[in-house]
């Protein structure tokens, strides 16, 4: 049986700028994949192609062996890097709109709002929410309907330690439920306790991927952050050598 999610030679250009250079990546069901890379590495572009926000260039994305379609995305949850909702509408109204699009009952939204601790402020207009609250509302929306794939773009940005702990616990629970998680982040220490697999993108190229345990063994490093910096340095040195050669 093939992988749950497969990116096959995925390429994407923005005009002359190459964002993804033939990315090949497989994700098994139930994995927590930490997608790492500097700004502009192509992490959000990869997510954009997966979620149908961007037209992919070459390559394909397969879900359970077949080309990904809009109907598959009903079972996805997505938390963008900068969550944008309808500011005049309340927490409940925003949540209900997106929940209904996914065919979720209001009781499911209520459950998720309670889970992220926002049910008490469900009547409050979104424009009055703090950044952390907005992030939690986005998370509640993405969790509606128990998605089989959660795509989280920089979910740890701007969270205080308490909120960070809460988010980590929710992601742990989702993983235990059997959901597959794709998490792009710069906050490597926050994803390390959760990640089972790691993929590192540099300048649109997948330079490293595999199980976290195997990567640790291969790089003789104990921390994910050290592995990431080591891979980035090696890639940078190799690029310099190519230039001088």
């Amino acid at each position: 049986m093939g992988a749950f999610l497969q990116f096959k030679s995925l390429a994407k250009n923005y005009g002359r700028v190459v964002a993804l250079r033939g990315v090949d990546l497989s994700v098994e069901r139930g994995q927590v994949l930490a997608l790492l890379g500097p700004n502009g590495a192509g992490k959000s572009t990869l997510f954009g192609c997966l979620l149908g926000l961007l037209r992919q260039g070459r390559g394909e994305i397969l879900l359970d062996g077949s080309c990904i379609a809009d109907s598959h995305r009903l079972h996805f949850g997505y938390l963008p890097e900068r969550i944008a909702l309808y500011p005049q509408r309340s927490v409940w109204e925003n949540g209900l709109f997106f929940a209904r699009l996914k065919n979720c009952a209001p009781t499911e939204l209520e459950r998720q709002l309670k889970r992220v601790g926002l049910y008490a402020v469900a009547d409050r207009p979104v424009r009055q929410l703090s950044k952390g609250m907005l992030q939690r509302l986005g998370l509640a929306i993405s969790l509606c309907g128990e998605p089989e794939l959660l795509v989280l773009d920089e979910p740890f940005n701007g969270l205080d330690p308490a909120l960070l702990d809460g988010l980590q616990q929710i992601l742990r629970d989702e993983s235990e439920r059997g959901a597959t998680l794709l998490v792009s982040t710069h906050t490597i220490s926050a994803i390390e306790p959760l990640a089972t697999h790691v993929a590192i993108l540099l300048e649109g190229e997948l330079v490293e991927s595999g199980a976290l345990d195997q990567l640790r063994a291969a790089h003789k490093n104990t921390s994910l952050e050290a592995i990431y910096h080591c891979v980035a340095r090696e890639k940078s040195a190799a690029a310099k050598e190519q230039v001088f050669a």
């Binding site: 926000l53 909702l85 699009l101 795509v151």
Partner: peptide
Amino acid sequence: EERTLALIIAGGVT
């Protein structure tokens, strides 16, 4: 412009 459309499309709406 407000980026809400991305959330709608990502939610499986064609």
